[in-house]
């Protein structure tokens, strides 16, 4: 089967972008979508033409490196899968596919379909961790965690930091990503001591990075390759307002 690609080509964040057409070679339906792009690139390279810039690494949906918008859908067709988990059998012979990068102010384009997602790292650096130095840990079983909470925490921790939630949101909001981390840590007793500080710091950083506000569109959940639930966003909101309330300056009793 063959497909026609219309690919966004752009040099650097200030570059002028444009869509450029490419024809895929004849590929087997068992070929993965990114393998098809590899073949297109190998062909371009052997003809000394510039290949399409795109990122990937694990190619099994776990590292979060890959990601592009295919015909308007972040990570393309398929439910709960990343771009690297698409197979050509999910497309039809002769399809025309438009490939675009994640589009968000906070994710500037580096080249073609590759964007800079370091804003996500800075949000985690702002507070998405538990402060425990190496060597300071008690025995693993000294902190029992109810199985239900451990499972819910794991559901949230499954986020791969790909950015599809931002790309699919008309406001380019990062709420699903942030809520996944806040939920993961807030659901565990280990996360309790820094619960308030963490959520406030992460939300502040998120705003500073230029991500948009959440207006409950739900597009993020639909695009998320790990099916992170938007109920996490509700939890994030609760955590945030709870923390804000507790943050009220402690009233100091005036002495005599």
């Amino acid at each position: 089967m063959k497909v026609t690609l219309k690919v966004w080509k752009q040099n650097g964040k200030n570059g002028q972008g444009e869509l450029k057409s490419y024809e895929s070679p004849d590929v087997s339906p068992d070929c993965s979508f990114l393998e098809m792009l590899d073949l297109v690139n190998n062909d371009l390279e052997s003809k000394n033409q510039e290949p399409i810039g795109f990122d990937s690494d694990c190619r099994e949906g776990i590292c979060g490196t890959c990601g592009m918008v295919i015909n308007g859908v972040a990570h393309g067709p398929g439910h709960g899968t990343a771009t690297c988990q698409l197979y050509m059998r999910q497309f039809k012979d002769g399809d025309v596919l438009t490939l675009e990068p994640w589009r968000a102010t906070a994710f500037p384009v580096i080249k073609d379909l590759v964007v800079d997602r370091s804003a996500f790292d800075r949000i985690i650096q702002a507070g998405g961790y538990i402060s425990v130095g190496t060597g300071a840990a008690p025995d693993g079983n000294a902190i029992p965690v109810p199985k239900e909470n451990a499972d819910l925490a794991m559901d949230a921790a499954a986020c791969i930091g790909c950015g599809a939630c931002v790309a699919s949101c008309k406001n380019a909001s990062a709420m699903l990503f942030v809520s996944a981390k806040v939920s993961h840590l807030a659901l565990l007793p280990q996360g309790e001591p820094e619960r308030e500080r963490r959520v406030i710091a992460m939300v502040e950083q998120m705003d500073k990075e230029g991500f948009g506000a959440c207006t409950n569109e739900g597009e993020c959940e639909a695009a998320c390759p790990k099916q992170i639930s938007i109920s996490n966003i509700a939890r994030l909101n609760r955590e945030y307002w709870r923390a804000k309330l507790l943050e009220q300056p402690v009233r100091v009793e005036k002495g005599g």
């Binding site: 538990i130 425990v132 840990a137 693993g140 965690v145 109810p146 451990a150 794991m154 840590l185």
Partner: peptide, 20 residues
């Protein structure tokens, strides 16, 4: 020690119903 460290960091290891 590795397991202890990872649990303290919040790694959501699989657990039994009793929480262990």
């Amino acid at each position: 020690n590795i397991i202890d460290q990872c649990v303290a960091q919040g790694v959501p290891f699989a657990r039994e119903y009793g929480g262990v």
